[in-house]
Design a protein around this nucleic acid. Structure first.
Length: 202
DNA sequence: GTTCTAGAAC
DNA sequence: GTTCTAGAAC
């Protein structure tokens, strides 16, 4: 009879009981992209949201509304959609032109979160959410695959084989290095301090 | 993906 | 002794 009364189980999980798990963390993007409060832009094909834990001053995600599990599942039929995603990414960078910051558009070769998503991220990497070597290397090594490269490969071969797919684990362990001047850094706090000097003060 | 924290690194 | 990293999370 409990099933007939919606909300019962929710109410039963009282103050001293842990909250009911609604979904795995890797499904978080689905929740976010369907949350009107988080949608920066939305049309019949794509949605734009802000990254929940931005790794730079400006960090957006552009997602297709249809479910595409990964880069490997991309087919030629997705080309138009990928170009829409890229175009929207370019529009976002245009809006931030006055910041003087550079941007990159691209995909993680092996993302943690389900649902294909393109990162639009400014290259200052000045953010308290950027904390670990994994964070750093996921955006500054070949782990990050340019959107243009993805589209080009899909156009020429009909498939996408992320260049780094086989060595993604090693790429994330790459020794720390400044993405601008390539100077080696011994740890994250020093790297984060170092990259500040490359940000044009505007 | 993040949080937490043990123990490595300094 | 403090800073920093890296692995578990049921």
């Amino acid at each position: 009879d409990e099933k007939t009364k919606k909300g019962t189980s929710r109410m039963m999980s009282g103050a001293n009981r842990p909250p009911v798990r609604t979904g795995h963390w890797s499904m978080g993007l689905l929740d976010s992209m369907n949350n009107p409060d988080l949608q920066i832009y939305k049309d019949d094909r794509i949605v734009v949201i802000k990254d929940k834990y931005p790794k730079a001053k400006y960090h957006y995600l552009v997602l297709p509304r249809i479910s595409i599990p990964s880069l490997k599942s991309l087919k030629s039929e997705h080309l138009e959609l990928l170009k829409d995603i890229h175009k929207k990414g370019r529009e976002i960078t245009e809006k931030h032109k006055s910041s003087g910051l550079d941007f990159r558009l691209g995909y993680h070769c092996v993302p943690s979160m389900s649902h294909l998503h393109m990162h639009v991220i400014s290259q200052d990497f000045n953010s308290p959410c950027l904390k670990t070597k994994k964070h750093w290397n996921s955006f500054t090594t070949q782990y990050f695959v340019g959107s243009k490269d993805i589209i080009e490969q899909l156009e020429t071969t009909g498939r996408v084989n992320p260049p780094a797919a086989g060595r993604h684990a090693e790429l994330l362990k790459t020794p720390l290095r400044c993405h601008v001047c390539r100077q080696a850094q011994t740890n994250m706090p020093k790297l984060k301090q170092h990259i500040l000097q490359h940000i044009k003060s505007k």
